[in-house]
């Protein structure tokens, strides 16, 4: 079953309601489906197309542009190692090679037990903390080979790795691949200002008053 579950469909409808046009919700919804299934399935895309009222082909069109969306199963933990210039200067390629040897796979592949995927990625916005890696988009700074081994060992044993973790509190918890934010935005109905309809929204009242 890879259409959205009823619970997730309810979340999807809430997300859609925050945009003047439903298609705008597509990227957040693709993330939601990836959170549910670990990757983006064809059935999920058909479901999303129904929800935002576009064709499934348009959903695939958007999905394939963005590299975070995986259309094949990936590991429970996706380990991204940035090798861009600031990181390369301080040994990121060596770290990547270490990771490949340690896990026995080349970048872009998944370990046979389905636990780890390694990716050689571009800038992760942590350039002053090189070399650095992310596990399911949670940061680890100034990582060397030994640190990498310790992080992998912790994850294998179901522990939250703390060594070199940028955020060690509850906000740093590492969920399975697909889950991004640990908290969702929720706009209470009695507090919502409402969407600005591009076809009919009037001039803002607070501007009119001053005139």
């Amino acid at each position: 079953m890879s259409r959205l579950t009823p619970e997730n469909e309810a979340i999807a409808r809430e997300i859609i309601s925050r945009y003047p046009k439903p298609k705008s919700a597509l990227i957040p919804l693709l993330h939601l489906s990836q959170e549910q299934n670990g990757h983006v399935t064809d059935e999920a895309m058909v479901h999303l197309a129904e929800l935002v009222d576009v064709t499934p082909a348009e959903v695939i069109g958007t999905c394939t542009f963005y590299e975070m969306f995986k259309r094949e199963p990936v590991g429970r933990y996706v380990v991204n190692i940035c090798t861009n210039i600031a990181f390369q200067l301080l040994g990121a390629e060596e770290l990547l090679h270490h990771a490949e040897h340690r896990l026995g796979i080349k970048a872009g592949n998944t370990t046979p037990d389905g636990l780890f995927t390694i990716e050689d990625v571009e800038c992760v916005a942590a350039c002053t903390e090189a070399p650095c890696l992310t596990v399911n988009y949670r940061y680890f700074y100034k990582v060397d080979g030994e640190d990498f081994d310790a992080i992998v060992e912790d994850l294998r044993n179901g522990r939250q790795p703390t060594r070199k973790a940028a955020e060690t509190g509850p906000d740093g918890a590492i969920p399975s691949h697909g889950t991004l934010a640990l908290e969702r935005q929720h706009i209470p109905a009695d507090r919502a200002a409402g969407n600005a309809d591009p076809d009919s929204a009037p001039a803002p009242v607070w501007l009119e008053q001053q005139a």
């Binding site: 693709l30 993330h31 963005y66 969306f69 935005q185 706009i187 200002a193």
Partner: peptide, 24 residues
């Protein structure tokens, strides 16, 4: 602070959190 009638004034605006998916 956000939403309908911010701090009791006639200024109303929603801030919607949106997130991308990896594309420079």
């Amino acid at each position: 602070y956000v939403g309908r009638n911010v701090l009791g004034t006639n200024f109303s605006v929603d801030i919607v959190l949106h997130w991308g998916a990896g594309a420079y």
